[in-house]
Amino acid sequence: MEVTDIKEKWTNKIRTVTIGATADEGGTRANTVTVGGETTLPFLTFEGEIPNRPVIAGAIADVVPEGWPQILKDAIGDVINSPAEWAQKCVEEYKVDLISLKLIGGDPAGANRGPSECAETVKSVLEAVDVPLIFWGCDDEEKDNELLMECSHAAKGEKCLIGSATESNYRTLGAIGTADKHKVIAEAPVDINIGKQVNILLQDAGFSLNDVVMCQVTAALGYGFDYVYTIFERVRIAGLKGDDLMALPQIANVGWETWKVKEALQDDDVLPGWGKLADRGPMWETTAATGYLHAGADILTLAHPKSIAAMREAIDELMAN
């Protein structure tokens, strides 16, 4: 029996963003990473193109993240104490496409490292690995303005992806990105309208949306995952239907959010019958990452080596067939 034609006719293409600069382009990366460019929903290649595969960023931090469970620290090993070595392990052993460095050491309520110390960390990671770099501030807005500026200078010309521009600091981030030729992450607090608004603000401030990756505060599985999953889908559908302000690649910060929630922190002594944390934790991360991948994420930030391996295999399989 002939089956009725069900192909969608998408009219628009998601913008492409290239992260990293090789020597030819004024940087020191061995290769660049390009995301976006889709003219169809995730992996539905029968009605459009997916020119660039979704990529995995290894989540690392300048100081050992407070609150991460021992099973995660053990899986990563001693390198967790050195961002440069940690980044190397991510690239060489876990085969990540790029590094996502969070400068939590800058947090005034934590280690309170100065901007220049943070910039040194950025430099050390850039020297240690030759894949493109994403780096983020410490989530203290006042501190981040200063900190990101200094880190941006230190990485000038490397075309890093910097997080993140919000409704309140988009001017600073746009200015930093323009001055030092970086790309910028536009972030919104689980709100699709604010997501679009931040893009508009960045654009109005003179920053090209061709250099922006969208991000929603990425909910962990079981903690608002349904909201963020649906925002990813709606953003992608709006982009494909012709809304240029939404036709941007998206990043899901799965690692950072996963390792804060009960199911990824507590072992079966606290949660009897729920399985060993050493397995459940990375499963929690992997399950959320899978959801976001199919909702339209172009970059997945992951922390546990097992999650990274599982998602790499999944993307290989989906792109090959």
Binding site: L221, E263, G273, G275, K276, L277, D279, R280, M283, T287
Partner: peptide
């Protein structure tokens, strides 16, 4: 449980 809880969630 380590596999079921994430999937059921």
């Amino acid at each position: 449980g380590s596999e079921l809880i994430p999937l059921l969630t």
